[in-house]
Design a protein around this nucleic acid. Structure first.
Length: 420
RNA sequence: GGAGGGGUGGCAGAGCGGUUGAAUGCGCUUGUCUUGAAAACAAGUAUGGCGGUAACGUCAUCGCAGGUUCGAAUCCUGUCCCCUCCGCCA
């Protein structure tokens, strides 16, 4: 959630920031609701203070209330209830108005309303936009991917990995987790995949994107579209003690997405599916450090691509293309020779204090100091089916076998995938 | 699924209709003492809203939401969560 205080203090600055991402927030209404809110609070506080005073006097003097006091206090009580009801209505509308408003992009995020305006800020050494056979042919031929089985079990956009294909994915996930925990210093988390609505709201996925989420009606739980949701919920409603930040978490989980908004895109192969594995990095940091932390996370994700020997490039997303909760985002794309396109395998964002405010996650900078909102950052490290695709398509040899990156061999126990 | 028990401040733990935002202990912060430390002693130590430049004032919060009452941490209803025993099951 964006800061109500900031909107009210400098509405035009906030409006300008959101216009950059193609949004026109109802600022006038928000300001109106906020001043109404303050009026009602002041009115109800006067009545409550009076009621407290009278009741306390009765208690102090150990006597029965006088009849006229009872009458007066009943009226006061009725008035308190009435104002409270008004206030609840105002707060509800304020909340409903604020929740669908996205985060404001940082000043250094480039202008632009769609992906056309994203900027390639660097490309890995030895760029070769090679071409080859697509994974849906190659992997099916090698019998490590079964798209038909996926479709028959669960429908379109589901898939089955078999044999060395399945093990390759497991090896990639384990390898990435080991790097993140042992080299980059993240704490591994294995969170619930089903979460409450409040948790989903805290991350920014609700209320706006409910059409892309799977949900169980009986238990009122939602399937996570990314581990970010669960990791973001880890400290909801908490005050994090001094000297605990930055907190760095990593989790490998499935991600469940309906992809209704992407109907018709990427229909072949497993580039875009309803369920996929992902290793996700997440940090809670002090606001002052969030810029450098974001760069650090980008570097960590890049290093994974580099160690796998993949050709990749880094994009900075323009204001109109960053995610709802993001204030600034980098994407990493790896070259996929078979698909003949760049595949997004990581998206690294700072959400500033947007998620922390929604979540009620705060921290205490030092003993005795008042609480502040931490910044939250997230980034894939990395997204699995796509990095799997890249490894398969890039490793394809003339003879139809696939050579896998050396770093994975300790995890697979073999260095090549060949036809049975 | 059946039967019970419980959710109070950073933690432990009182309170069960009236100066209780909340005893007491621990922890933490500061000070006194000490060459230093420990111990001892003293003071302080929740979060948020509203008003105020501030000092400060005021309101709310004892899982959450309602209700009863002049007055609720205390009584009532609902709900969420935790624990114990039985059943079932990976």
């Amino acid at each position: 959630m964006i800061s109500l205080e900031q909107i009210v203090r400098d509405p035009e600055k906030f409006r300008a920031a959101l216009v950059r991402r193609g949004e026109t927030p109802p600022i006038e209404r928000i300001i109106e609701l906020d001043s109404r809110r303050k009026e009602l609070i002041q009115a109800v506080d006067v009545d409550r203070a009076n009621r407290n005073k009278v009741s306390k006097a009765i208690g102090d003097e150990k006597r029965k209330p006088m009849p006229e006091e009872i009458v007066e206090m009943r009226e006061t009580g009725d008035r308190i209830k009435a104002i409270q009801a008004d206030l609840a209505g105002v707060l509800e509308e304020l909340n409903a108005t604020l929740l669908p408003i996205p985060n404001a992009p940082l000043d250094d995020v480039p202008d632009g309303l769609d992906e056309e305006s994203n900027i390639v800020i660097r490309t890995s050494e030895g760029l070769t936009e090679t071409h080859g056979n697509a994974h849906w042919d190659v992997a099916t031929e090698l019998d490590i991917l079964d798209l038909e089985a996926g479709a028959s079990i669960a429908g379109a956009r589901f898939y089955v990995l078999k044999g060395k294909g399945a093990k390759l994915q497991r090896a990639l996930a384990s390898w990435m987790l080991d790097i993140q925990t042992e080299v980059h210093g993240y704490t591994e988390i294995d969170p619930p995949l089903l979460v409450r609505g409040e948790t989903m709201t805290g991350s920014g996925n609700l209320p706006k994107f409910k059409d892309n989420l799977y949900r169980d009606d009986d238990s009122d739980l939602w399937l996570v579209p990314t581990a970010e949701v669960a990791l973001n919920g880890l400290h909801q409603g908490q005050i994090i003690d001094p000297d605990k930040l930055p907190l760095k978490y990593v989790a490998q989980t499935p991600s469940f997405r309906k992809e209704q908004t992407s109907a018709g895109r990427d229909v072949r192969g497993i580039k875009r599916v309803h369920q996929f594995e992902k290793v996700e990095m997440f940090r809670y940091v002090e606001p002052e450090t969030s810029d450098e932390m974001l760069e650090e996370m980008l570097g960590e994700a890049e290093s994974l691509c580099a160690r796998l020997g993949l050709t990749y490039r880094v994009l900075q997303l323009c204001a109109g293309d960053i995610g709802f909760q993001s204030a600034k985002t980098y994407d990493i794309e790896v070259w996929s020779p078979g698909c003949a396109e760049w595949l997004e395998v990581s998206s690294i964002s700072t959400c500033t204090d947007f998620q922390a405010r929604r979540n009620g996650t705060r921290y205490r900078p030092e003993v005795g100091a008042s609480t502040k909102l931490p910044h939250t950052l997230n980034g894939s490290g990395l997204a699995l089916p796509r990095i799997w695709i890249a490894v398969i398509e890039n490793g394809l040899q003339e003879d139809g076998t696939i050579v896998i990156p050396e770093v994975l061999v300790p995890y697979t126990g073999w260095d090549r995938i060949e036809a049975n």
